[in-house]
Each structure stands twice: as C-alpha cells, then as structure tokens.
C-alpha cells in the first residue's frame, strides 16, 4: 500500500501550499485526496484562496478603478457580449464566455467501449467528475477522423455548459477573450463550418471569427444518444 501523507486538515498545521507538495500538483499522496478526489474540493484549498482576499489593496489599483468608474456608462442599443476565442484547424471560433466553465490543460480521453466514435471521443476526468468529450472538428467540419488523428494538435480543453451538465471539447489553442458588439455580428455566410451550430460571424483584427451558437450546440449534444 502506498504511503499517505497526513493532511493539514487533520493535523491542524499550516497548509504551506500543501496542494503543491502532497496534493494534485505535488506527489498526490495526501490522505484527504481519497475523500475529496481533487484539491479544488478540499476546504483547506478553499480557505487558502479566501485568505488572499484579506490583503490590503494596492493603491494604484484603487486609483485605476476609481478612474474607470468615473466614465459614464455608454448607451448601447446593441448588446455587447464577450466571447472566448479558440483555434480549431484553420478556423478561429468564439463561444460565449458565460457558457464556458473552465479552460483546462489537455487530459487523456478514455474511450467508451462500443460508444466512442468520431463525434463522441470518450470520458475525461475533470476535477473529480467524469465528463463526456466531443469532437468539435467532427461536428462543425464533418470530419470522420478518430481522436488519435487529432490528439497531437489539441493543447487545451474547454468545459462548456451548466454546472450539472458540462461537456468537454478539446481545442488546439485558446487565444483569449474578445468583446463583440451586437451590431458587428453578421449573419453566418461561410462554408468553413456547418451553419446549424453558428450564431454569426465577425471580424477579429485581420481574421474572421466564427461565433458558435451554444444554445443549440449544448442541448443537442446533451440529448444525443450515441
């Protein structure tokens, strides 16, 4: 039996960043991992995060906030929304940031016997829960390749959906957030990806950004019987 390190939660000692020593980012030998599976679920980790909020404000930060608040809110007849931009093949895609629960490093996707195919890649452990992983390439570009053909290009995973029903999409890279004004969104008119899953397109610097319609995408995949 492997040696288990005593948890600071039980011994009462100072955690001293235990998540990096004996937790999931360290040796993984903490005895509490059997209970909490991941440090994210441990009260010691949560409490340590809150301690950071007991620090005093940097003065320059407060001044910058104060200056920003002085600017009058602009009257916008069009709704402004924030999209997470990611790269998939030759396309730049955007998904509404409200629907993205996390951006994660790529993990091994476990095949589901008799179910894994070009669309359903398999199961991925995310913070102690198993989530279904789907191929956006297959859905948007109708590619029939298996996950092995793409896995070298995937560098990130997006966790998308509601807290109870989140799905995982491996992507090539995540480029950041962009704010898009409703008036800049044009109807989708491209053959690059299946129009069913798109809410429109807009320009992002010199590239075209294709905006995913997660209101159609997520419920469809959740209801899919594969």
């Amino acid at each position: 039996m492997a040696y288990l390190s005593p948890s600071p939660r039980r011994t009462g000692e100072d955690p001293n960043a235990c998540w990096g020593r004996i937790g999931v980012w360290g040796s993984g030998s903490c005895e509490d991992l059997e209970t909490f599976v991941h440090c994210f679920n441990c009260p010691i980790y949560r409490h340590s995060g809150k301690v950071l909020l007991e620090r005093s404000h940097p003065e320059a930060y407060l001044e910058s906030v104060k200056d920003n608040l002085k600017i009058e809110a602009q009257d916008r007849s069009f709704k402004q929304e924030t999209f997470l931009v990611f790269k998939l093949g030759q396309c730049l895609l955007g998904i509404l940031s409200d629907s993205v629960r996390a951006v994660l490093p790529i993990e091994k996707i476990h095949r589901v016997p008799f179910r894994t195919n070009h669309l359903l890649l398999g199961l991925v452990p995310v913070r102690g829960n198993l989530r279904l992983a789907y191929s956006l390439q297959s859905l948007l570009f109708k590619e029939k390749k298996q996950s092995e053909d793409h896995k070298d290009s995937w560098r990130r995973m997006l966790l998308v959906g509601s807290p109870n029903l989140s799905l995982v999409f491996p992507v090539e890279d995540v480029l950041g957030l962009v704010s898009v004004d409703g008036k800049d969104v044009k109807p989708y008119a491209s053959s690059a990806a299946d129009a069913r899953w798109m809410r429109g397109m807009t320009s992002n610097e010199d590239d075209t950004l294709l905006l995913l319609n997660e209101e159609v995408l997520i419920p469809t995949l959740q209801g899919l019987r594969v």
Binding site: H57, Y61, L62, V65, K66, L69, K70, I71, E72, A73
Partner: peptide
C-alpha cells in the same frame, strides 16, 4: 466594486461615510 476611497459628503446620518462617483 472594490472599496475605493470615498469623497467627503456632508451628512449627519450615522454610517454614511461619503460618496463615490459611479458611472458619472
């Protein structure tokens, strides 16, 4: 919003510590 410094506000109300400029 973060707890920015308030500007003085003449008030005899207990607890009212000042004012902030919020969105103009």
């Amino acid at each position: 919003i973060p707890s920015i410094n308030t500007d003085p506000l003449e008030s005899c109300l207990k607890g009212v510590v000042g004012s902030v400029v919020y969105r103009g």
